[in-house]
Nucleic acid binder design. Structure first.
Length: 602
RNA sequence: GGGCGUGUAGCAUAGACUGGAUAAUGCACUGGCCUCCUAAGCCAGGGAUCGCGGGUUCAAAUCCUGCCACGCCCGCCA
């Protein structure tokens, strides 16, 4: 409740100073009250009690009286603050609902719920999955988390560039490329069958990420009993690291169709990128070489027996079996992490703020890269780590084929959503319309299921949760939004001009009519906090906090919807219309920020 | 061996960074609500020694510390 806080703090400061209590960090103690019945903000008076040698109850009472006096003397303060009360040693502050309604409703326009542009350039790198097979729900946590942050930053008024770093020169691509050169379809089927792998493309025949991952898996099986494969792959990888154009081209031919297939899947989830940057770029343009030369002048630099170069990071607080960070092999070539340093240097050239989305397995490496960046005079990026998604029976792995494909999950989710919409609307909507709705519900639900839990928390994928369309879920949000849309449609259908009515409502200052309705006031409270929550979620990389807020907002809107008809027997209540439309805008933009599609009916 | 993270009703989660009143939400469970803007909804109810022990504090799910369990990491791999 930052709105009230701004008005309250100067007055509170005055009262506390008069009582000799202003040297305590009381701004921090002033918290959002847990129970809305207790007020909007609360100040516990226990620490004051110790200083004044009075009971907390008495201190609260005294402060309360002083504040009430101020309130009666200051018109604006009096307008904003409905009441201040002392209770159990707490001071409880209640905002005047009409005042808060004025703050929010008088500002209504098509940008309600969005923050103003801040001209701040943010680069977010996410997904960056090896292009060796179809997207599974494990890999998807990165893409969904990353894309949600991209959307929330945009909603918050940042200029965002979304980057996909394409690993086009590693061992994994090498294996894929080797397989396509050395195995044929028959051999692949044979190898997979002999290893007891399930080998049924089902509906994904012809989709290249699904097709080619079989080659990748087969090659992995073949190489277990044939060391020559490793040698051949190793040689190609070595050549790629030297920037050998022919090898890089054959790698490119191997992975590009796979990457395209993966991107098709991501597009179904509404995930798109502004730029794709290839790892080989930094080898070819020489920047990796420069980085290695710079690192060799670092005070942390050391050389191994065979001529490999490293940074000794013990003094930087790195602990464990090995504290060395190798950045150049004995043969002079670079390593993945070295190229990552060059990549970061390049990224910093195009943004004010740099954010990476990484799995928790990259924590150490990320610290090492950060230290190396400091050694070459660059800033350290912000990193969001997430824990892995497991299946009930263990970890997912593309190599071993123990996965739930995102493509399959989406098909299943669409089928469930279609079933639901048919049950409810079959006699009103066309088949085509229902399929459209099912598609939006499916991708929204899949994303929300992943985004609403804190990134650092482990996550077990369960079909029943992913396909649950009730309660704390995307369809719940979407449904609230469709209700607001239904209201708008009904008002228009009965011959009113909605925008004209809104202008009329504003000119009549309908917010002054706000009464003591619990549901309407709860809705106003949440609308008042909307941008505060967004800012917190963006600054701290915690999208699930915004998800929780939008759930609460949708729930509050449902309460308002129940209690306050907007149009009844042809007559429009202007205050309720304005509140409904404001909520609709906030819900729609909030949904978009979470990757939930705010469709108009379902 | 060491580092990092997680542990909250039967299940899944929020709250922890920044200590504050009766620990919030959904699923599941019990009961109620569609002549009224979409019931994917709403209302009411039962269900929690916040992993375990100690400490700091007027006040601890939250901070410190020890232990236990789970996950991730400690490659001249990517």
């Amino acid at each position: 409740m930052e709105l009230l806080r701004k008005v309250l703090e100067p007055h509170l400061a005055e009262v506390l100073a008069a009582a000799g209590l202003d040297n305590l960090p009381w701004q921090k103690m002033l918290t959002i009250a847990r129970e809305s019945a207790q007020g909007d903000l609360a100040l516990p008076c226990f620490p004051f009690a110790q200083i004044l040698k009075k009971s907390p109850v008495q201190v609260a009472k005294d402060l309360c009286e002083a504040l009430q006096l101020l309130k009666s003397q200051d018109t604006y303060f009096n307008e904003a603050l409905l009441s201040v009360e002392a209770s159990n040693g707490y001071l409880n502050f209640m905002t005047n609902p009409a005042w808060i309604a004025k703050q929010i409703l008088s500002q209504y326009d098509e940008n309600s719920g969005k923050a103003a542009n801040k001209g701040h350039r943010v680069l977010i790198e996410h997904t960056s999955a090896n292009p060796n097979g179809p997207f599974h729900v494990g890999r998807a946590r990165n893409a969904i988390l990353g894309d949600t942050l991209v959307r929330l930053h945009r909603l918050h008024g940042h200029e965002v560039q979304a980057e996909y770093y394409v690993d086009d020169m590693g061992k994994q691509v090498g294996i894929l490329s080797w397989a396509l050169d050395n195995l044929d379809a028959e051999k692949v089927s044979e190898v997979l069958a002999s290893a007891g792998r399930q080998d049924d493309l089902g509906p994904w025949q012809g989709k290249q990420d699904h097709e080619r991952v079989r080659w990748y898996q087969a090659a992995n099986i073949v190489k277990e009993n044939n060391p020559q494969v490793d040698e051949e792959v190793g040689e190609m990888v070595r050549l790629s690291e030297e920037g050998d154009q022919e090898v890089l081209q054959s790698f490119n031919d191997a992975y590009q169709p796979v990457l395209d297939g993966m991107l098709d899947t991501l597009a179904e989830l509404g995930i798109e990128y502004d730029a794709f940057t290839k790892e080989s770029k930094f080898v070819v343009d020489g920047s990796v070489g420069l980085i290695m030369e710079q690192l060799e002048t670092s005070e942390l630099h050391g050389t191994a027996d065979n001529g490999a170069h490293y940074l000794e990071l013990e003094s930087k607080g790195i602990k464990g079996k090995s504290t060395k960070f190798f950045f150049r092999r004995g043969d002079g070539s670079s390593l993945y992490a070295t190229r990552d340093v060059a990549y970061h240097q390049w990224k910093w050239q195009q943004c004010d703020r740099l954010i990476n989305i990484l799995g928790e397995d990259h924590k150490l490496q990320s610290r090492q890269v950060g230290i190396a960046l400091e050694e070459v005079g660059q800033r350290v990026p912000e990193v969001v780590f997430y824990a892995f998604i497991k299946l009930p029976d263990g970890k997912m792995s593309t190599r071993r084929g123990n996965v739930v494909f995102m493509d399959d999950l989406l098909v299943e989710a669409r089928a469930h959503a279609l079933l639901a919409v048919k049950e409810l609307r079959a006699d009103e909507l066309s088949q085509e319309k229902m399929e459209e709705i099912a598609e939006a519900v499916a991708s929204s639900a899949v994303r929300f299921n992943i985004i609403h839990v804190a990134p650092e928390k482990g996550f077990t994928f369960r079909w029943e949760d992913a396909l649950s369309f009730e309660g704390d879920s995307a369809p719940f949000l979407m449904y609230s939004h469709t209700r607001a849309c239904a209201i708008r449609r009904k008002v228009a259908r009965e011959g009113h001009d909605v925008e004209a009515l809104i202008e009329k409502a504003k000119s009549q200052e309908v917010w002054n009519q706000v009464g003591d309705s619990k549901s309407a006031n709860e809705l106003l409270r949440l609308l008042g906090r909307h941008l505060d929550v967004l800012e917190n979620a963006v600054d701290n990389h915690r999208p699930h906090l915004f998800a929780s807020h939008i759930l609460a907002l949708a729930s509050a809107f449902n309460g308002f919807y129940r209690d306050h008809p907007v149009i009844f027997e042809g007559k429009v209540n202007l205050l309720n219309l304005l509140l409904s439309e404001t909520s609709r805008r906030h819900l729609a933009s909030g949904c978009q920020g979470l990757g939930v599609i705010p469709i108009e009916e379902m």
